[in-house]
Design a protein around this nucleic acid. Sequence first.
DNA 1: TTGAAAGCGTTACCAG
DNA 2: CTGGTAACGCTTTCAA
Lengths: 353, 353
Amino acid sequence: METKRPRLGAAQRPTMKDVAHEAGVGLKTVSRVVNGESGVSEATVDRVREVIARLGYRRDDAARGLRNGHVASIGLILEDTTDPFYAQLVGAVQTVAQEHGMLALTGASDEDPDYERDLGLALCARRVQGLVIVPAPGSRHDYLEPELAAGMAVVFVDRPPIGLAADTVLADSRGGARGAVGHLVERGHRRIGFLGDSPGIYTAGERLLGYREALAAAGLPRDDALVAMGPPSPDALGAALAALMALPDPPTALFTGNNRTTVETLRILARREERPALVGFDDFELADLMTPPVTVVAQDPVGMGRAAARLLFQRLAGDRSPARRLELATRLIARGSGERRPAGLPGEPRDRA
Amino acid sequence: METKRPRLGAAQRPTMKDVAHEAGVGLKTVSRVVNGESGVSEATVDRVREVIARLGYRRDDAARGLRNGHVASIGLILEDTTDPFYAQLVGAVQTVAQEHGMLALTGASDEDPDYERDLGLALCARRVQGLVIVPAPGSRHDYLEPELAAGMAVVFVDRPPIGLAADTVLADSRGGARGAVGHLVERGHRRIGFLGDSPGIYTAGERLLGYREALAAAGLPRDDALVAMGPPSPDALGAALAALMALPDPPTALFTGNNRTTVETLRILARREERPALVGFDDFELADLMTPPVTVVAQDPVGMGRAAARLLFQRLAGDRSPARRLELATRLIARGSGERRPAGLPGEPRDRA
DNA sequence: TTGAAAGCGTTACCAG
DNA sequence: CTGGTAACGCTTTCAA
């Protein structure tokens, strides 16, 4: 009987059996050669190697994983790979993963909780050993319960999970926001506006809380007219900013809630007359080259990604201790825009040079 | 005989067999329910569904892929995920992949050709259906020959493959560079410096060629003292720039070869006295908010990623035509830094307002 | 040093 | 409508 023909059109890959047949040895011998096991004569090794090269044989890791424990890969879900903050974070996770000989299957949820869940399930179906997730706003994670029970490691970054006890790595958003607003208060500002991301986003909420705490600590009144929360689109932000500046008692300083918002606000301010002081949450490239350079509360995306990945691999190495929650400190970097004083108060000396 | 116990410690996942047993139905029936096939009574479907939910069963795609054609995933290799140019490109590839129901396994080669090859082989072993590669400088790709023969689709982006005929998507680096330098020449510059990436990088070489072609077309002499190529580290660039400016006849304009180089050059120039005109290859966020705003030759990373992914899926859909090479046009965006005239010539009028 | 057989979890085929 | 059986490509176990 002839060798069975493959499906039409689909070129066929050689298997171990093909190699064994071609080299005139047993299947197991090929397996041993492929995996560099001992117990094969040098002559046989050479022959098998030659056939492998000639046929272009590649071991199938899926089949291998089916038989053994499982294939070395982790899953990574975030909302948007192109945001520099997440790009850095992903890069760090991947670096650590590759150091452990693992590849990362990456998916972008684009802020859609349902899609995030689909991605998570797809990754589970592919039997990734671990999962790093930046939750979309509003997504629940109880569906991962059985995975955890089955030994999969799951770590959440930047935002906490909902409905699941699992390791979490966050930035200290509230403390960072307090510091930013406190910094402005110390410079004499009494009317400080907050431009934050959509209120459904965990970090946006925390930063709003920090903003309020700092005002309260300084004995300043809470004025919700100074707060605008929403997606950082140019239009929405332009309207919000215009409204803020049209107030009878407009803010002399702004605190912006993430890099997108900060950048877009800078763009809008460049077209307007006002020059409020500004502190942004999250550092961004070229902040130092703006005029004036932009004062920020820097997060550490690389540190967060690395911490998350390390936690993950600790779990995979067998750590069964209770879920941990890491909160990484932020750091205020004063560059100029946040040190402007309100009109009417003496400013700092300029241009000593 | 009792059910066989799993390896100690490793929690066990339920399989279809477990579900079938628990629900008191056959294996195939569970399979039908899981895959939404018809031919199962509603009552049975419900019972099976209930058991699946209770046991937390998840289909194993590795086993599934072993049996069928293969699992829906593609591989993605680039050198650095955190560079905004590549971040955009990756994002586009992933978006298209997800639209096709595929996930992307991503690896970063970090400019190491050997590691790039290892990543490629690892992805082949995982039987990805397609591969998108940004080649590391100096890497060869003939090792992918058998994969292509076996029906895998491979597309190269940003840089062409070496030793393999495969689809390739590039930016028109040479034409873009010609345009940039021509733009400066038209503004009266006769001494134009070029700060490029390491000469081993394909795009760096092309941009150097474009630079030279533009000079030649303008009848300007070639002066290699005006060219500095190397990795865009602050130190190296600082030294190169200092050397350039110390020339007896220093450049009045600079052409920088990629976004990293442009940004670092801006940073260095901010600390120096000279204010040469500047055009950068590759656009970057905030270029419009620099003083002066930075003129660039914009590439289209999203377009490139999308084009690459589309080519890939065309191939996977059965397109067997010869390898294609796409070269995407660049676009010069004049913002100010590239329109400065050399000292001694009248500048453009400023501040009409 | 070598190889035959069983089995990993799933699906296709075919029989009930 | 339902369910056995074989097979996917590999590794493990055990016997030669």
